[in-house]
Simulated assay, not measured.
Amino acid sequence: MKSVRTPFLILLLLASISCQPKNKSDNQEVAQTNESENHSIAKLSSEELQKYKTAYFASGCFWCVEAIFESVKGVKEVYSGYSGGFEKNPTYEEVSYGRTHHAEAVEVYYDPETISFTQLVQVFFGSHDPTSLNRQGPDRGAQYRSIAFYKNDKEKKIIQDYIAKLEAENVYGDRSIVTEVTPFEKFYRAEEYHQDYERRNPNNSYIRNVSIPRLNRFKENFKSYLKEDVH
């Protein structure tokens, strides 16, 4: 019986740990946790960011996705936020409860001389399950869906060609890729306490049990893509 009960207990634990707040008090606790464990993290200025290109992706809780892209060489800055919907100025509470059409997403500033958009697409697909519909890990709902945004026809083709390659190589077996390939329209940055959340809150239960293991799996599979100071 032990071999049956143990996986069940693990699933039960993960089900209780989610990027989504269960009520307003949980929302407040997220902010308070950030304040209590705050670490000073330097961010590039608006003028400095203008030197780089941007890319946008959604693949589950933005705390996880932000940390993954921040570990990649050539990526200069990453912001957590909301995209893919039409509602203006969405809030974390609205998006996380599924009250908008937006998904939790990230804005990636990158140096194209160091890393290409194609490689960022590879990072995107290699760091989550693109066959999981409206779910990533313990997080469920359309707000956690998989989306690869494009800003022009060239980027659209790169995404579509890579999906075709994954399918031709039968990477996911009989599971279909459900990633949305969507034209980019607007990105709304999330509230300040969400930015660099994993680095600021290493002791948060979600970060310890979901985000860090996901990041470590990515680092193990994409060693050549990592910044020199990432281990």
Rank of each mutant, 00 (worst) to 15 (best):
L120V: 14
R145V: 02
L120K: 08
V121D: 06
S116P: 03
N89T: 11
R135H: 05
Y110M: 08
F125M: 15
S146Q: 07
Y110V: 11
T91M: 01
T118E: 14
E87Y: 05
R99T: 04
A103C: 14
K88W: 01
Y144D: 11
S96G: 02
H128R: 09
I115W: 01
E93Q: 08
H101Y: 12
Y109R: 10
V108E: 05
Y110K: 01
L133F: 11
H101N: 15
I115N: 00
E94S: 14
E93P: 00
D139C: 06
T100C: 01
H128L: 10
Q122D: 07
P130W: 05
V95Y: 00
D111A: 04
Q119E: 15
I115L: 02
N89M: 03
K88A: 12
D129C: 04
T91K: 02
Q122E: 15
A142S: 15
G98I: 13
S116M: 10
L120E: 12
P112K: 08
I147T: 13
S146W: 03
V95H: 00
G137I: 14
S116N: 07
H128F: 11
D139N: 04
T131R: 01
F117N: 10
Q143D: 08
H101C: 04
S96A: 14
L120H: 08
D129K: 04
S96Q: 04
T100I: 04
G84P: 04
A142Y: 08
P138M: 14
G98W: 07
V106C: 09
V95T: 09
V106Y: 05
A142R: 01
Y109I: 12
F125C: 13
D139A: 05
S127I: 15
E104L: 10
N134K: 06
S132Q: 14
I147G: 03
T131A: 06
V108H: 05
S83L: 06
I115A: 00
A142T: 15
K88S: 10
T91G: 05
G98E: 12
T91V: 07
T118Y: 03
R145H: 08
Q136H: 07
Q122R: 11
S127R: 11
H102W: 05
D129A: 03
V123T: 13
V106I: 15
A105V: 07
P130Y: 08
F125D: 11
F86R: 04
V108R: 01
